[in-house]
Amino acid sequence: MQGKAWYKYLLSLPPMAYLLIFFAAPTFLMFFATFRYAGEYGGLAPWYLHEGGRLTLDLTLENWQRLLETDIYLRLFLKSIGYAVTTTLLCMIMGYPLALMIARSGHKNRDLLLLLVILPFWSNFLVRIYAWMIIFSPAGALTRMLNGALELVGAGPVTLMYSPTAMLVCLVYVHLPFMVLPLYANLEKHDLDLLDAAQDLGAGKWRRFWLITWPLSLSGITAGSILVFIPVLGMFAIPDLLGGTNGIMIGNVIKQQFMESRDWPFGSVLSMVLTVTAVAVVLLGSRLGRRREGR
């Protein structure tokens, strides 16, 4: 049965056809759209003209030029990448002890502890953002407590809502499970005999961690980092709801082009740049992962 060609096509053709139509074709159309003019009232202008009975193409490089003519879009990308890197690092700092604790706890508790990490992830992501909006609201308990404490030491009140801090907290909160799960999957596979052997040889707790656990877990960290980094890079809802006057990321500007400015070609240009960035990150990550496994 393995050898029969019809069976192979029976299996692979339907999903392939679907994804070619609804994933590959739209991506290609988006690339094509970067060379077209925006329609006067939105959408796209026709890509050909009838001139004297002849068909002429009406395409342009203007949209790409717009990307390069100032440095604001470069700065926008750098800013988004900055947010994504910070979020990834924070997720790592918070996710590592958690994943380690779950991986080192008894088999009986492990499933439950793991489920407890996934459970919040299964409640709607807007609901989770909203939860933080309540917490950060100036009349909320946290802000009041914090400002009460600040007043005691003589510092002025702070606002949490609409700040980069609020954005980062939310970004970390929403993406933390993406870091914990692959990390756990990695840590769980470690051979604990190695640690015991190191202990017998007189290595302290931290030494054992840095020399054994940490290097072995690098591939888990790489996987988790990719899973956090990429969705954060394309995020627009969190900056929209919590960002304040400075919280703007590439996702917001893409959304603006499609939903507000009605400039689809330029939105497509920004989307293509984001696509290339995401692909580069994935390739880099899998490259790193492979090299480690090879060692």
Partner: peptide, 12 residues
Amino acid sequence: RLKNKLWTEIKL
């Protein structure tokens, strides 16, 4: 297009 560019600059 012009307004959007100015607007993005403001936001950034």
